[in-house]
Write a protein that binds this DNA or RNA. Structure first.
Lengths: 252, 252
DNA sequence: GTAGCCCTTTGATATTTATCAATGCAACTT
DNA sequence: AAGTTGCATTGATAAATATCAAAGGGCTAC
């Protein structure tokens, strides 16, 4: 009775196998998107072996030298930024097929922490080698740029969320985003298991954990979702979506 | 009596001249950073002529086809995202030497609007050509990646601001950020002219314009700054910085 | 030069979210 | 199996910010 329930075809994870983009079920979501077989073989060649992490382990920490980016092969991560004065902001949650570590390129050092929220596995992509290969393979270069750009666009979405939405709107947006991403990976969009705590959700959404908890309870009372600890079932996706679009709209 | 007052050497703008990275005073802040003379000449060659914009004009709009990124040569811009339901979030303010438009790479269409907040000039950098050239010039490729990564890091900083700071902290961070960027361009870090309205500041900071106005007034009452409409003079930078670091610290 | 408009400021009040506190639940350990 | 610990829920209250409203100031355009 545990989420996530597979609801259709795509077999997702083949744990224990040697990393190889050409064999990976995530290739359409990940860096090798659109490469020819030949080019994919060259990419395979530069990608370092996979690395497994236990829940709670850091993939990298702020300040560490930047050498690679990472593709999530299985599992679930959070990234967060910590300032000297003790502020802590979760900047994202990453799942299979998503790329981690691009923040480190600018300063040659990671600027945030990446932590596995469940037992996970990543592919290691040495960045200098990736740049070299992408000079030769135009579609790889372009796709890398798209991935980085997509991250910028995603960040703008988070700014929108933090800057303009109230607590329940933020949580609705968060749930719908997770739902859509699980769906894209062949999991149920309606029923899933949260890997993060209320506090981590709160940090991501700019809310306190109590506020997150209350919003969950309210959604449950209203029949939008059912919540049992970390197990979420979305009962009414359309109505959840309407929470994001104020009916009359502060359209000023 | 108008800001911004030049406080040292760097002559910044040479309006009317043909764009040429090799002649540009911004080259150390901008894309050609670190290129040899020869490579810079090649970059010169691909950069389309400059484009001038009057205050209020759009450089691009969300939905338009993406073809180029832009380097701000002179002036001041804002970028904002608008959703169907009427939410409006300013995602950044850009000044000389900064790059605009990288959000458009991922979908081949711009995802936000860029508007000149004063009469401005940009260099047009056709992206396909830039990719081709950067395949050949490794340092250009790497610097482009750094610029994109820097944008991601900047966005994380904004998330931190929106997610963890209260109104006065946000405004202090905003002013200190502007101060530092003006300083880096040879302008006074203590005295400058805001190009944006209180509402635009508020949108960027996730606050209502009245809250921004009150925070300005409070800072003035406390002798931290002097405000006269859009003219800002920072009187006590160190004390403004302490506003960002809560003395005891919510260091939980 | 002047009228009009937009921007800004300030006050009073309402709303939202945080804080403080206590209890309950569940998984993990021993 | 019981105890421990961390996580989640819920309630009462406080604090922060938004909203509504009105008036003043400065810039722009005519």
């Amino acid at each position: 009775m545990h989420a996530n329930v597979k609801h259709n075809v795509v077999p997702l994870i083949t744990p224990g196998l040697k990393v190889a983009c050409s064999q990976c079920n995530l290739r359409e979501l990940c860096l090798p998107f659109g490469l020819s077989d030949e080019d994919m073989a060259r990419l395979d060649n530069l990608i370092g072996g996979g690395r497994k992490l236990k829940r709670g382990q850091h993939l990298y920490r702020a300040g560490e030298a930047f050498e690679s980016i990472f593709a999530v092969k299985a599992g679930f991560f959070k990234t967060d930024v910590l300032t000297e004065d003790g502020r802590d902001q979760v900047t994202g949650f990453q799942m299979a097929g998503e790329i981690l570590g691009m923040d480190g390129i600018s300063t040659e050092a990671h600027t945030c922490n990446a932590v596995a929220l469940e037992d996970s596995e990543v592919c290691l992509i040495p960045f200098t080698e990736l740049e070299m290969l992408s000079s030769e393979i135009h579609s790889l270069q372009h796709h890398l740029h798209k991935v980085m750009s997509r991250e910028i666009v995603r960040d703008h979405g988070v700014m929108m969320l933090l800057g303009t939405m109230r607590a329940e709107e933020r949580l609705a947006a968060f749930l719908l985003n997770l739902s859509q991403r699980f769906n894209a990976r062949g999991y149920s969009p309606a029923e899933f298991h949260l890997r993060m705590t209320r506090e981590e959700i709160g940090s991501y959404l700019g809310l306190k954990l109590e506020t997150v908890s209350r919003a969950f309870s309210r959604f449950q009372d209203e029949g939008l979702i059912s919540v049992q600890q970390k197990h979420i079932r979305i009962l009414d996706i359309p109505r959840l979506k309407t929470l994001l679009a104020p009916p009359d709209g502060r359209l000023g």
